[in-house]
Simulated scan of single mutants.
Amino acid sequence: MARKDIISETSNRQEVEDFLSQARGLSVSAPASGPSQGRLIFAMDATASRQPSWDRAAEIQAEMFDAVDGVGALDIQLVFFRGLSECKASGWCRNAKSLRNYISKVSCHAGHTQIERVLAHVERESANGKVDALIYVGDCIEENPDHLAPIAGKLALKGVKTFMFQEGYDRDASFAFGEIARITDGAFMQFDASSAKKLRDLLGAVASYAVGGQNGLSDYQKKTGSDDVLKLGYQLRKKS
């Protein structure tokens, strides 16, 4: 399995508004018709409490590829953190079997959240080729949101929208995840442990957006009839 360690990066919070202003001026966004190929980073919290959710994600990740079948190609990279300092990325996958192979080989270990390292990795990865979207799935945060905002600003400059999906309703996580989504013109959604279908629909929605832009997202919503996908699309339209 090809993996690489992810090195953390920090910035000053004062830079955030400057980044946002520049990002708005550049108007970096997915075109209405959408590209024929998308690149998406799928990041998950793999600390100890997340094992049931991790196993569930392994089962439903195929929806991201199924959603764009016949529409375009989708490359997905898995990123996860666990333990006290482990944060790694897989190679790029273009089918559900390859991604599942990566996910199934990871077990969750006790540790702290490392969202800052995830965002820094995505920012570096986007320098090697356009990254259309980041999906992050987690339930809590143990980091200072002020350290995350500047890196989110860098993602906004590069046109990477973040889709922050929170399992549960931890207040601190809701605030931080919402801010990251806001800064990058992405979306923030919550779900509970029994909402496998909701998470599946949301994963498919982001994949559709990464490959087909707003049109791809709209087509996926019509196909699924999902109110949650409709709400996600509404967040994106509000920011466009």
Rank of each mutant, 00 (worst) to 15 (best):
M1F: 06
M1T: 01
A2D: 15
R3E: 11
K4L: 13
D5F: 12
I6W: 06
I6P: 08
S8D: 14
N12V: 00
N12L: 03
V16M: 06
E17Q: 11
D18H: 13
R24S: 10
R24T: 06
L26M: 12
L26D: 15
S27V: 15
V28M: 11
A30I: 12
P31K: 14
G34N: 02
G34A: 00
S36F: 08
Q37A: 11
Q37G: 02
G38H: 05
D45M: 03
T47D: 05
T47F: 06
S49H: 00
Q51F: 05
Q51T: 10
S53I: 11
R56P: 09
A57K: 09
E59P: 11
I60R: 09
E63Y: 00
E63F: 01
M64F: 01
M64D: 13
M64K: 15
G70L: 04
L74H: 02
I76R: 10
L78G: 05
L78F: 14
V79N: 04
F81L: 00
E86Q: 04
E86S: 08
C87V: 08
G91N: 10
G91T: 07
G91S: 07
W92E: 02
R94A: 11
K97C: 13
N101S: 09
Y102D: 15
I103A: 12
S107Y: 07
C108F: 05
H109C: 12
R117F: 01
L119S: 00
V122N: 13
V122P: 02
E123T: 09
R124A: 04
S126L: 12
G129C: 12
K130H: 13
D132F: 02
L134Q: 11
I135L: 01
I135T: 10
V137Q: 15
G138H: 04
G138R: 00
I141K: 12
E142G: 15
E143P: 08
N144P: 03
H147E: 13
L148V: 06
I151V: 15
A152M: 03
G153L: 01
G153F: 00
A156P: 14
K158W: 01
K158P: 07
V160A: 15
K161G: 04
K161E: 14
K161A: 11
F163N: 01
E167F: 05
G168I: 05
R171T: 06
R171E: 14
A173R: 14
E179S: 10
I180C: 04
T184N: 02
G186L: 05
F188A: 05
M189C: 13
D192F: 06
S195Y: 06
L199H: 07
L199A: 00
R200G: 12
R200P: 07
D201R: 09
D201P: 06
L202W: 06
A210I: 02
V211F: 00
G213D: 01
G216M: 04
S218P: 11
S218C: 06
D219A: 13
K223E: 05
S226L: 07
S226Y: 08
S226T: 13
S226H: 08
D227H: 15
D228C: 11
L230H: 12
G233N: 04
Y234M: 10
S240A: 12
